Simulated assay, not measured.
Amino acid sequence: MVTDFPARNIALFIDADNAPAKSIEFILTDLANYGSLAIRRAYGNWKSDNLKQWEGCLCENAIQPIQQFDMTKGKNATDMAMTIDAMDILYQKNMAVFGFVSSDCDFAPLATRVRAEGKIVVGYGERKTPEAFTNACTTFSYVDDLGDDDEPRRKTNPVDGNTLKGDTKLLNLLRNSIEACADEEGWALLSRMGHSIRNQSSFDPRNYGYKGLGDLLSAIDLFEIQKNAGGGANRVRDLKKHP
């Protein structure tokens, strides 16, 4: 999670047809870590009963509803409208961070294009979201595991260490990032490691039930963690290479 860019402007785009309203408090709180939420828009057919869940939180959270009628049965114009607006803002406004809320893989090309312009892309969606979209984002957080509207917290228990050790893809990502950032003694600063990971994937330790990268590394128990004076993880090295 990023906490050192308070001056950056953020544009948030919500595909209300493919996102649960209960996730909005978590999303707004999380995005605030990246900077200032300058633009907040939610797209959908607001005449549809399917979006009733969103009505109460739009005004409360200063989110602008953008009406899109269903042109054809079974289809909607939300995806196209969101994409056009996002591209307009990309070139017309000074936005450093783009937040996309959807579980629809149709937004993968949009996320890829926005990242190509050097922007941070933060995605949110349900666990059914295809990897094509999650991997296109700088970071992607699942919102299935949140509490109720007035309690935006995760209910999921942390994934146990043995299960994490069996996740080859995760271990390769962590080990490659450590190696890329390590000094001559094998130590890698956690901050640099996190930056390296974000450049490779949409990894978010909270998707595994952990607050931060240091907590997840400690649970795996295959890495040596060195803590700072405040008790938080500061740097790490791979015990496989430095037993």
Rank of each mutant, 00 (worst) to 15 (best):
V2K: 08
F5N: 03
P6I: 00
N9V: 04
A11C: 05
F13L: 15
D15T: 08
A16W: 09
D17N: 14
A19Y: 09
A21F: 06
E25W: 04
F26W: 11
Y43H: 04
W46I: 02
S48L: 13
S48V: 12
D49H: 12
Q53E: 15
E60W: 04
I63R: 08
Q64H: 12
Q68N: 08
K75W: 04
N76W: 11
N76E: 08
A81T: 09
T83S: 15
I89D: 02
L90T: 11
M95C: 07
C105A: 14
C105V: 05
D106G: 03
T112A: 10
V114H: 03
V121G: 04
Y124E: 11
R127T: 15
T129L: 07
N135W: 00
D144W: 11
G147N: 11
D148K: 07
P152S: 10
R154A: 03
T156Y: 00
T163E: 15
T163L: 08
G166H: 10
D167I: 05
T168F: 10
T168G: 03
K169A: 10
K169H: 09
L173M: 13
R175A: 02
C181Q: 15
A182T: 00
A182S: 15
A188V: 02
L189F: 10
L189V: 05
L190V: 10
G194M: 07
H195A: 14
S196M: 14
I197G: 02
S202M: 02
F203T: 01
F203A: 04
P205Y: 14
Y208L: 10
G209C: 12
K211Y: 07
L217I: 10
D221N: 12
E224H: 11
Q226S: 13
A229Y: 11
A233Q: 00
N234L: 14
R235H: 08
D238N: 09
D238A: 02
